[in-house]
Design a protein around this nucleic acid. Structure first.
Length: 695
DNA sequence: ATGGGATCA
């Protein structure tokens, strides 16, 4: 088992009330209630309160203020209120605060409304996709996802109603945060009165400051009343997490699953009560670790019988996810084995011990092959600190890192690579185009993606016919595609369905393709799931199978019971219905007529081809193992075992996406007629691949 | 012959 050493010992047995930032559920937590301390007192206790005057002064005098503060500083809930109190929302202006995630937006907004004693949706409101709880006249503080703010820019490019925009969690460097930061910098030039607050948990504030420091000096104006300094201010606010003691392994471990299991066992044997949170990489790892721990518990009655072991990842049904928040029997210890979901998205109260494998699954994009891969990669120091912090939310905790201190100090990178530099950029590029950014290659990003990735995105958009030779949006197709809030290939498919008379069906398919999975993933019941799928299976492929599932769901009266019986994820289907409603509204707005093709699946397949022709593949002649080659680059690919076309192997197929493990697997596959390819994209196939398709 | 890290619109 893994050996740990202690760098120091201390143990202040201090218990304090929680800061009340983003607390989603509280289950086994001790009373951190707001009942016995007034809200005003609580606000004043937050570390950020001491900086109220400083923050207001900096915002007044600087175009951009960067606030560095760890979790628990109270910056997210307090700064918007400070601004409001100082008059930044007077005269009908609005203070905006963005978050990367929907749940955080809702949680923070309702907390702030509570603190201000107002009804959510009036003076304090929020907007996320499908939900707008704001009032046009009375809302003064508005929380929203950064994706929503980007969409708002399509209506109002200068975001004129906002006086201050606070971008929270900027250190996460998500694509939409980075795009937003790039655009806000541009807006600042046109709107000197606009103030930005960039809030980040890590110290890379300097590079962020450099990004917002416009070199052009407006001499003579700076420092005057209405014109703020262009040099960003940086302010650091301490957090209020409890001390977390860090332990490292002495020697690198070869098997982090086994190491994690033994570490959990030794914590359970030797340490006082407190829940354990283990960070592994994915469903496979997690299920394996859960199995090992459960076996240990059975073999080793005395010491491990007190463990309640629970997996946590986003593919679980809602009910299974909720298990990790539910109370467990007295005297038992909860062990949650989780993916990165517990690093930022979900907060578990009552965790005192964290076991960190040092790895997570990360997306990497190769612009040459145009393939996104999911690979297990080492996390950054920032990520490791974030994980450790999960042990110190309600009292001092301990974090056991399954890597050496030398590795942490010398080899771990300080920050992760921004998502922007690891992703396919088609969605991002079309959004910028729609906002009138002509020179994509010259755009001032907080972190520039590679020129290859940008050029590849431009090529794909050109081949879809949404950009012309001058890389301008085409009319109407380009503008329509930009309007639809989906991946441009899916949006193109929707446009094509208008001409083909199957928009009803294609909108359903589009909604399903844009969520992760409509199936429940249940451990040990894979066979049952596969059998359930057969009930819906269509010879044409997965897309048509989705239509059958959707039909069945409607026929059942959208019944959760029906979903369970058929291994369909009820939450996912509700989301599909929601997205479908939104798409119907968008379609109407951009002139797409809703029409069903009834049972003519040929037009459905043609519409799919119109969006996804670049993903066409041909079964290798004489292939006995189902090997396909992509038409575009002769890449070797296989049909994913989860597809209804697995082992059916039609001669010509189109896939929705590739996943790569030991092989490249095509997920969500539909059979096509190759002649449709030239019909759908003559320029693409005739110029690039004149000989590969039979005419 | 075999399998989806987390988000957002």
């Amino acid at each position: 088992m893994a050996q740990f050493w202690k760098p120091g010992t201390e143990r202040p047995p201090l218990l304090d009330d929680d800061e009340g930032s983003i607390l989603l559920y509280s289950a086994s937590s001790s009373s951190s209630g707001y009942g016995y301390v007034s809200i005003e007192k609580q606000r004043q206790r937050l570390p950020v309160f001491k900086y109220r005057t400083a923050i207001l002064y900096l915002v007044e005098t600087h175009a951009t203020t960067i606030v560095v503060g760890e979790t628990g500083s109270g910056k997210t809930t307090q700064i918007p209120q400070f601004l409001k109190e100082a008059g930044w929302a007077d005269g009908g202006r609005v203070i905006a605060c963005t978050q990367p995630r929907r749940l955080a937006v809702q949680a923070v907004a309702s907390r702030v409304a509570e603190e201000m004693g107002v009804k959510l949706g009036e003076e304090v409101g929020y907007t996320i996709r499908f939900e707008d709880l704001t009032d046009r006249d009375s809302t003064r503080i508005k929380f929203l996802t950064d994706g929503v703010l980007l969409r708002e820019m399509m209506e109002d490019p200068l975001l004129t109603k906002y006086s201050v925009i606070m971008v929270d969690e900027a250190h996460e460097r998500s694509i939409s945060t980075d795009v937003l930061l790039g655009l806000l910098k541009k807006i600042q030039r046109r709107r000197p009165e606009l103030r930005l607050i960039i809030s980040s948990a890590t110290i890379e504030a300097k590079s962020m400051a450099a990004f917002f420091h416009t070199s052009k000096k407006r001499r003579g104006l700076e420092g005057e009343d209405c014109v703020p300094k262009t040099e960003p201010a940086i302010l650091s606010v301490e957090g209020r997490g409890f001390n977390v003691q860090i332990f490292y392994v002495e020697e690198p471990v070869s098997d982090y699953i086994q190491a994690a299991v033994s570490t959990v066992m030794s914590i359970h044997d030797q340490e006082p009560m407190g829940d354990i949170l283990v960070f592994l990489t994915g469903q496979d790892d997690i299920d394996a670790a859960v199995r090992l721990l459960t076996e240990e518990a059975q073999n080793n009655l005395k010491s491990s019988s007190g463990l309640v072991v629970l997996p946590l990842y986003s593919g679980l049904s809602r009910a299974d996810q909720d298990l990790v928040f539910s109370p467990i029997p007295r005297g038992k210890r909860k062990v949650v084995i989780s993916t990165n979901i517990a690093e930022t998205s979900l907060t578990l109260e009552g965790v005192s011990y964290v076991v960190d494998s040092g790895f997570s699954k990360q997306r990497f994009y190769n612009p040459i092959s145009d393939i996104e891969n999911l690979v297990v990669a080492p996390i950054s120091k920032a990520s490791a600190r974030q994980r450790a912090g999960r042990a110190g939310r309600v009292r001092p905790g301990k974090c056991y890192r399954l890597y050496s201190e030398e590795y942490f100090v010398k080899e771990m990178s300080a920050e992760g690579i921004p998502e922007m530099q690891r992703s396919n950029l088609v969605s991002c590029v079309i959004q910028l185009k729609a906002l009138g950014i002509d020179n994509i290659l010259g755009f001032d990003w907080p972190a520039s993606p590679s020129p290859e990735a940008m050029i590849r995105a431009l090529e794909v958009l050109y081949s879809l016919g949404v950009l012309d030779e001058d890389a301008k949006l085409t009319s109407p197709a380009g503008f329509q595609v930009a309007e639809i809030p989906l991946d441009p290939m899916i949006s193109k498919m929707i446009l094509a369905s208008n001409q083909l008379g199957c928009s009803e069906e294609i909108i359903t398919i589009a909604a399903i393709l844009s969520i992760q999975s409509i199936w429940i993933s249940v451990r040990g019941q894979q066979k049952d799931l596969d059998e359930a799928k057969l009930r819906f299976a269509a010879a044409e492929g997965d897309h048509v199978t989705f239509l059958n599932v959707y039909k069945g769901f409607l026929r059942s009266g959208k019944s959760p019971k029906w979903c369970n019986k058929n291994f369909v994820n009820y939450q996912a289907m509700r989301k599909v219905v929601e997205i479908r409603e939104q798409l119907k509204r968008t379609a109407k707005r951009i002139g797409i007529v809703l029409k069903s093709c009834e049972s003519d699946m040929q037009v459905v397949r043609k519409a799919v081809t119109a969006g996804f022709f670049a993903n066409a593949c041909n079964l290798e002649a004489f292939s006995h193992n189902g090997m396909y080659k992509t038409i575009r680059s002769s890449q070797e690919v296989y049909i994913h075992p989860s597809s209804v076309l697995f082992r059916v192997n039609p001669k010509w197929v189109i896939y929705n996406s590739l996943v790569s493990t030991d092989r490249q697997y095509m997920r969500n596959v539909i059979s096509i007629d190759p002649s449709w390819l030239i019909e759908a994209a003559p320029h693409f196939y005739q110029h690039h691949h004149p000989n590969s398709i039979p005419h």
